[in-house]
Each structure stands twice: as structure tokens, then as C-alpha cells.
Design a protein around this nucleic acid. Structure first.
Length: 724
DNA sequence: GGCTGCGCACGCA
DNA sequence: TGCGTGCGCAGCC
């Protein structure tokens, strides 16, 4: 922006003559501005009828944005004419064209300066205003000088503001306006959200060139607007740049209102909008462009709650926020640009995190990261298998040790491959882990344990969803809501269980994550889990689809029934024997736990599903019932039913709602309610004894016997056998 | 009178 | 040498 020349000139040129001229010019301008009541006829003609034109009237925001446009257009116009865009001329022209009050124009200009949308420059001893967007381009060359001149800039800084208003004129220190601006910027930076800060930022330390160069991108302008094009959105500089010289274009623009400058208008508009940041809200708004990315970041940050995310988020946030913060900091200028630029790309979601660690691989392409991700998944898988194995052995009941970052990290560390890549730091692993979770290749339980998702599940849903635990919680909460209730209460227990289950499932899956085996259980969608989306294939349980609707349906037993109709097919899909076995195994393991957990489960039911990620695919409980409904139609003999059901899901993972849905679909809607009343979830169901069913549910004996014999017993048998 | 377009000079990279 | 800037002049409305 600041043309170095300007600075130089400033110092050099300050010659009296120059000043005199400028002053004269200014003087005229002033007179003119004030004196001028209306624009020339030409101007008038041109002047668009601005509704807003009555500057004072427009609402602040609107007016501000308009003023921006006007001012920027004016500056561009003047530049195109090879006229010095000084305060006087700007005010005059704005007044002429739009009828705005010069004072107001000055105020707005000042704001723009602060925002760095407009740069105040002292050139040849006189103050000029530049369209930051354009300047940036230019600045490339000159940049350095200006700042330097500034030495005193800071002092002037004050002036700057003042000056901006006043100065314009002449008076001020000619030299420093720039600096002033810089100051303003700095100040602004704090207040301002817009990061853009400017290109010009004159932070002394930095060479203007750099700055300028930076600007283009960043500077986009403070306000998010691209200096180059003047548009907010525009990536900095690109082609946007129109040369100032390209007066014609500009002109066109001006008149057109569009143009680059004109762009001004539109762009500006954009700016305005962006600028809103001014609101103080700050950064976010301003940065929009950048921030937009940031937004993502922020979200990440929010999500950040999750450790993994957190990491990524942190880095990300840093960027984003950093910019924000940076703004506040004196350095901000510099930072901003850089940050911003990078930022834009960075838009990436949280996962980027890698960057924080500085791992090239992580952040970047993720090539390595991808590898790591693969390994990570494999590690999780193995760990899960190991857990299962141990569980089966009885070493660890439940088999579920929850897989945590530590475990995974330890495992990875132990492995060669990983080592090759470089150090596996916790953060890296987290990042990658998070990413995989986001992709859906891994699941995270509420507890925070890592599990394998059902295969099909993978990414799709994940990305959309925020990986963070928070999200999960939200989802779960949502589900809970749908489901109804209580479930929420004991999420924690569920979690652990879920984690276990997941693992189990994985193992079951074939031990291989790859297999569909896993698919059974989890639905990565776990969260969504309840949906009962039908999984086309047994394997892919995913059900990601689960929507609240499904969930609700699932949760609500009866509702579930209704839904069942919808998805009869699934049941058929159901599971292969193998799957069943796997499921059963899982069940078995879980069962023991279930005693304790079962209670929880029902409560948390929905949550469990989701989180657990247990193989929902095949038949999530909800799904299953539905499907099962079909089954029943077929003949609901326990066998089919059971199998299908089992296949579909691991009863262990069933929530109360699932159980209800199951029995409802099985033809025992009334009795199903009893299960809900008693809060019998899948685990509890598996633990129920004959008497429990016959007498504990307060249901008629006949149905109770049928339920027990055909369903409960079968389910239990299946699971237990497998366990054996 | 005011605005615009442009030649030209200056200074930097 | 190229580019940005802006003074000053001439023309137009």
C-alpha cells in the first residue's frame, strides 16, 4: 500500500513547494467540498439516486457499508483520474455523487482506515487514501519504504485517526500519515476483527514489500475484502487486481457501481458485510473469508473438547484465533497476512491439527498421515482383537478394555512402521485419530474410547459430523431426546461398555476390522445408531443414516414398529451365521458386564447404540424390530427372528427401545411395553431368566412364555453358545 | 465551476 | 525499464 515512494517522498519531498501544492489542492478541495452543494450536472446525472444518499438517515450498518462502497469507489475513481485521493476530494466526490455529508464521509473513511479497508498514505507530503485492495497489489513494489518513514508514525498514530479526519489535509505530518494508518491499523487490529489488516501494516520490522505481498492475499483487506479485487471473497489478489491505472475499468466500475472499484460497490458490500466485524464482534465476521475457514476452525475448537480435536483444533484455532489475537498484537499485521493466507486453505476442518505438531505429514497431505491413519486403524483393530481375546479367555471380562489414546499410541509406538514415519507423538496420534474418527474409519465412544466403526460406515457420515466428543454428546443427547429419556442418565457406563462392545464387535467382525464383522456392531453412526438404517449388507452396518426420526422411531417402541414396515428388507439381509456368532460372542462378553451395565443400558440405550457403535448395521435394534417385523410376518419363529435379529445386532447393544421395538415387531406390542416399563435393554434381556420374563414383567403368562421361549431364550442361547 | 482524462515527471524496485 | 503516483493542464458539462 504505502508506496515506499510515498514515504521516501514524504521525507524528501516535503519540500515546501510540494506541500504548497498539496495544500492548495487540499484547500481547494475543502472549499469545494464544503462549498459544493451539489455535484456538477454531470455528476448529478451520474449520481445514482441513492435512497440512502441521505447519509444521515441510513442505518448505521447499512450506511456504513454504503459509505465504504462510496468511499472506495471514490478513491478508485480519483486514482483512475490520476488525481490524488485525498480527504477533500473524497468527501467532495462522495457528496457530489451520493449527497452524503462530508463529515459523515470522513467518519466513515476513518472507520475504513481503521479497518484497513482504506489506507491512509502520506505521499509527497500529502495525505492520500488508497483502496487497500488495490494498494496491496501495488504495494508489492513499494511497500517497504512507507513503513520505514514512519518512524514517528506511532506518534502520529494518534494523528492518524485525527488526521484521517482532519488531516486530510494537509497539515498533518505529511509523513506519517502512513504510520498513522499503521497505528490505526494496530489499534484497529485490536478492535477490528478484520484481519485483514492490512496489508500495509506497517509494522516497522517488516519490509513493506513483504507486507505488501502479503497483503494482497491477506489484506484482502482487513475486512475480509480482497484488496486485489476489492472483493471480500476474492482470494487475495488474484486477478482481481485492476490496476489503479486501469482507470477506465475503474471508471466503468464506478459508474457502474461495480467495477473493481465498482467492485467496490459489490465488493464493498461484501466488505461491509464482512466488516460487520466491526461490530466488534470482531474477527470472525471480518475475517470471513479467512475466517470462514476459521469458522471451521472455531468449530473445531469448540469441538476441541475432544482431545484429538482439541489438538487439531488448537492448531487450527491458533491460526484462526491467532489471527484474531494477532490482530490485537502489534505484530498482528504481519501475522495476519501470513496467517490469513494459510488460513484460507487451512479451512480444513479440525483435523489439520497435524500442523500444530509440525508434522509435515500430518498436516499436509496426510499422505503420511494417511498411512498413520491406516496404521492407527489397524492398531485399533488389533488392540480390539486382543482385548476380545483376553476377554474370551476370561482374562478380562468384558474384554473390553477401552482403547484409549494411550493404548493406541503405545501400540503404534511399538510398531516399526510407525516409528519409521517419525515420532509418534500423542498429538499426532490424536490428530490422526481424530481425522479417522471424522472419516468414520474409527469411532469414538462417548467415553472417548476408540473403537472400530462398522465398516461400511466409514467416512460418509463422519465428516459431516463433528468428530468431537461434544458432537457425540450432542448427537447422543439428541437421540436421547428422541428416544426418550432416561437413557441419558447412564451414558458413562454405557460408554465403557460400548467401547467394549465395539471392540468385541470388531473382533467378531472377523477379528478383522475389515470384515463386516465389525459392521455388525457399530454403526459408526453409532450416534445415529438407533436409526436402524437398514444396512444393505450385513456388514456395513452403519446406519449412519440414522436420523433423529429413525431414532425416535426406534426409541419409541411402537413407533419403531411402524417404521419397521418401512424397512422390512433389512431383516432379511441380516446376518450371516458368522456374524451372528461374532455378535453372540460380543454379547456374551458383554453379558456379564451387562448385569451391571444392563441397567445402564436401558437407560442410556440410545446412547449406547450410537456410541457403542455396536454393530448397528445389520439390525440395529430398532432396525431389527422393523425388519423383524417382517420376519414375524414370515413366521416370526424365534429362530428366524432371532437369527436375523442377532445378526442384525448384538442384543447386548440393544437399548430399551430396541428391545421394545424388537418385541413389538415380534408381535408382542403390549408386552413390549412391559420391557420398556422395566427398562429392559439388550443386556438385561440376555440376563433375564424364565421367571423374570414370566413374572417380572407383569405380562400375561401366555405371551410371556412365548416371548421367553421364542425370543429371550433363543437370544440368550445364541449368545451364550457363541461365548462358549 | 467542477469534474474528468491524460501527459508528464518523479521515485522506487 | 517498469510501475505507481500525482501534478497540472485541457476539455467537457
Amino acid at each position: 500500500m504505502w508506496p515506499t515512494q510515498a514515504h521516501i517522498e514524504v521525507s524528501v519531498l516535503h519540500s515546501p513547494l510540494c506541500r504548497a501544492r498539496s495544500l492548495l489542492a487540499l484547500g481547494r478541495c475543502r472549499r469545494a467540498s464544503y462549498s459544493v452543494t451539489s455535484g456538477t450536472t454531470r455528476e448529478k446525472r451520474r449520481t445514482r439516486p441513492n435512497p440512502n444518499s441521505t447519509a444521515g438517515k441510513t442505518t448505521t450498518k447499512m450506511s456504513e457499508s454504503k459509505y465504504r462502497d462510496w468511499i472506495l469507489e471514490t478513491i478508485d475513481s480519483l486514482r483512475s483520474r490520476k488525481a490524488r485521493p485525498d480527504l477533500e476530494r473524497i468527501c467532495r466526490m462522495v457528496r457530489r455523487r451520493h449527497g452524503s455529508d462530508p463529515d459523515r464521509t470522513r467518519e466513515e473513511l476513518e472507520k475504513l482506515i481503521q479497518e484497513q479497508t482504506v489506507l491512509k498514505v502520506s505521499y509527497k507530503g500529502s495525505i492520500s487514501y488508497r483502496n487497500a485492495a488495490k494498494v496491496q497489489r501495488k504495494s508489492r513494489k513499494k511497500s517497504d519504504l512507507t513503513p520505514g518513514s514512519g518512524g514517528g508514525s506511532e506518534v502520529e498514530g494518534e494523528q492518524a485517526k485525527h488526521s484521517s479526519l482532519n488531516n486530510g489535509d494537509s497539515a498533518h505530518s505529511f509523513t506519517d500519515l502512513e504510520e498513522v494508518e499503521s497505528r490505526d491499523r494496530e489499534e484497529d487490529s485490536v478492535s477490528e476483527p478484520s484481519e485483514c489488516p492490512d496489508p500495509r501494516p506497517e509494522t516497522p520490522g517488516i519490509t513493506s514489500e513483504k507486507k505488501l505481498k502479503l497483503f494482497p492475499l491477506n489484506s484482502g483487506n482487513g475486512p475480509g475484502y480482497c484488496p486485489g479485487c476489492g472483493e471480500t471473497g476474492c482470494a487475495a489478489g488474484r486477478g482481481c487486481s485492476g490496476k489503479a491505472s486501469a482507470s477506465k475499468d475503474k471508471r466503468l466500475g464506478e459508474r457502474g457501481g461495480g467495477g473493481q472499484e465498482g467492485g467496490g460497490s459489490s465488493p464493498l458490500a461484501g466488505n461491509h458485510e464482512t466488516k460487520p466485524g466491526q461490530d466488534g464482534s470482531g474477527a470472525p465476521s471480518k475475517a470471513k473469508g479467512v475466517w470462514g475457514g476459521a469458522g471451521g476452525v472455531q468449530t473445531a475448537g469448540q469441538e476441541g473438547s475432544s482431545s484429538c480435536v482439541g489438538v487439531a483444533a488448537e492448531t487450527e484455532n491458533n491460526i484462526g484465533q491467532g489471527s484474531a489475537s494477532s490482530s490485537s498484537s502489534s505484530n498482528s499485521h504481519l501475522l495476519r497476512p501470513k496467517q490469513l493466507q494459510p488460513a484460507s486453505p487451512p479451512v480444513k476442518p479440525k483435523l489439520r491439527a497435524g500442523r500444530g505438531e509440525g508434522n509435515p505429514w500430518v498436516g499436509g497431505s496426510g499422505q503420511t498421515s494417511s498411512d498413520l491413519g491406516e496404521r492407527l486403524i489397524a492398531s485399533v483393530r488389533r488392540l480390539a482383537e486382543q482385548n476380545r481375546a483376553s476377554a474370551l479367555r476370561g482374562e478380562t471380562r468384558g474384554g473390553h478394555k477401552p482403547l484409549g489414546l494411550k493404548e493406541i499410541l503405545g501400540y503404534l509406538t511399538s510398531q516399526d512402521g510407525l516409528s519409521s514415519e517419525g515420532k509418534l507423538t500423542r498429538n499426532r496420534v490424536k490428530v490422526v485419530l481424530e481425522r479417522e474418527v471424522a472419516r468414520g474409519r474409527l469411532r469414538r465412544t462417548r467415553c472417548g474410547n476408540i473403537t472400530l466403526p462398522v465398516r461400511g460406515v466409514e467416512a460418509a457420515p463422519a465428516p459431516a459430523k463433528p468428530p468431537g466428543p461434544a458432537n457425540r454428546l450432542l448427537k447422543s443427547s439428541l437421540q436421547d431426546k428422541h428416544i426418550g429419556n432416561k437413557e441419558v442418565k447412564e451414558e458413562e457406563p454405557m460408554e465403557t461398555e460400548s467401547g467394549e462392545e465395539e471392540e468385541d464387535e470388531e473382533e467378531k467382525g472377523t477379528g478383522d476390522a475389515e470384515d463386516g464383522g465389525q459392521s455388525d456392531t457399530q454403526t459408526s453412526g453409532g450416534e445415529e445408531g438407533s436409526k436402524g438404517v437398514t444396512c444393505p449388507s450385513p456388514v456395513p452396518m452403519e446406519t449412519e443414516p440414522r436420523n433423529g426420526d429413525d431414532i425416535t422411531g426406534g426409541s419409541e417402541g411402537q413407533a419403531g414398529v411402524k417404521q419397521e414396515d418401512k424397512q422390512p428388507e433389512h431383516t432379511t439381509n441380516t446376518v450371516s451365521p458368522d456374524q451372528i456368532h461374532t455378535v453372540t460372542q460380543n454379547v456374551v462378553q458383554s453379558e456379564r458386564e451387562s448385569h451391571t451395565s444392563s441397567v445402564h443400558n436401558h437407560n442410556s440405550g440410545s446412547a449406547c447404540k450410537t456410541e457403542v457403535g455396536v454393530s448397528s448395521c445389520l439390525l440395529t435394534p430398532t432396525a431389527s424390530p422393523r425388519d423383524s417385523g417382517l420376519a414375524e410376518d414370515r413366521g416370526m419363529n424365534g429362530g428366524l427372528f432371532v437369527k436375523s435379529e442377532l445378526g442384525s445386532l448384538n442384543p447386548v447393544n440393544w437399548t430399551v427401545s430396541d428391545v421394545v421395538s424388537y418385541f413389538t415387531s415380534a408381535g408382542f406390542p403390549e408386552q413390549a411395553l412391559a420391557f420398556r416399563t422395566q427398562e429392559i435393554d439388550g443386556k438385561s434381556l440376555l440376563l433375564m431368566q424364565r421367571n423374570d420374563v414370566l413374572t417380572g414383567l407383569s405380562i400375561r403368562l401366555g405371551p410371556a412364555l412365548k416371548i421367553y421361549e421364542r425370543h429371550v431364550k433363543v437370544l440368550q442361547r445364541t449368545h451364550f453358545e457363541e461365548d462358549d
